[in-house]
């Protein structure tokens, strides 16, 4: 039995917090399980849920777990506001509401046969992790697989152990850079776009998935274009103030589209003209 897609998409399902794990000073991961039982929480890489702290509010959070794992539902959250702050203060055994999954997914089928370049920054690695799991689970379907990750400092590198594990594999390439560091850091220092300029992939056929703060995505798209990656082969995950998550309320309207329903994953050429507009 699946716990996804409740009959009423506006009705939260109660989920219990099984575990809470601190990732960074302001970022944590929750493992959730439906209170009323049920099977695997089916979702596609890139989709999000609405997480409801009763009496406080509801926020959209991308799923950060393995889509092919039948374990708990996993969300990685950065505490930046009232609801995310309330989630940070919760503990194992507490109950929250979950609606979802919602939104579009990374086009993993479309990318088959191509090199796949994942460009990500900061906490943007969390929504990217399900697609990494998928690509690795079906590794033979893809060409080269590259993760290019940027963070503010070494202390802000998310999923560090997992990045190290992925980096130790022979069938993928992982490169990490930070904006600033002290002499104790043995890795690269510089902007994430420099990783794009250096990375070994076929720019004329590669698929690029970009996820991070929008200012980072802006420069990443520019660097991908400079390498020769066409807009049609670039997808990115947009973040907007989503409320209903099903395209009713219009809070997340982005030009002629709704980020909750038509996104959050968009092909870049579909949003290119409004991507840099201050207020659409």
């Amino acid at each position: 039995m699946s716990v996804t897609a409740a009959a009423d998409p506006m009705l939260p399902e109660p989920f219990g917090i099984l575990r809470k794990r601190r990732e960074l000073s302001d970022t944590f991961t929750l493992e959730l399980s439906p209170l009323h039982g049920g099977g695997t929480f089916a979702f596609r890489p890139g989709q999000f849920n609405m997480l409801y702290v009763f009496g406080v509010g509801e926020i959209p959070i991308s799923i950060s777990g393995d889509p092919e794992d039948d374990g708990p539902l996993v969300h990685t959250i950065r505490a930046v506001g009232t609801v995310s702050g309330a989630l940070r203060d919760m503990e194992a055994g507490d109950v929250i509401g979950v609606r979802g999954p919602f939104g579009s997914a990374w086009p993993v089928e479309e990318a088959e046969g191509r090199d796949v370049v994942l460009v990500t920054g900061g906490v943007g690695l969390a929504p990217m992790r399900p697609v990494i799991h998928h690509l690795l689970a079906h590794r033979q379907r893809y060409g080269k697989l590259l993760i290019l990750y940027g963070a503010r400092t070494p202390e802000d590198v998310l999923f560090r152990k997992q990045l190290e594990q992925w980096r130790s594999r022979f069938d993928m390439f992982v490169d990490v850079t930070v904006d600033r560091a002290t002499g104790k850091w043995r890795g690269r220092v510089g902007v994430v776009t420099k990783l794009i300029a250096r990375a070994g992939f076929d720019p004329h056929d590669a698929a690029a998935f970009v996820c991070g703060p929008e200012v980072m995505m802006r420069f990443s798209v520019q660097a991908l274009n400079e390498r020769g990656v066409a807009d049609e082969r670039i997808h990115l995950s947009m973040e907007r103030n989503m409320k209903c998550a099903v395209g009713f309320c219009g809070h997340c309207q982005f030009g002629g589209q709704f980020v909750c329903k038509d996104g959050p994953v968009f092909r870049f050429d579909a949003i290119r003209d409004i991507f840099s507009v201050w207020e659409v």
């Binding site: 503010r152 776009t193 980072m216």
Partner: peptide, 15 residues
């Protein structure tokens, strides 16, 4: 250009 990009502190989430 890279120095200017880093001044943006681009990994910070919008508040």
């Amino acid at each position: 250009a890279a120095a200017r990009m880093r001044l943006l502190d681009m990994y910070d989430s919008p508040k």
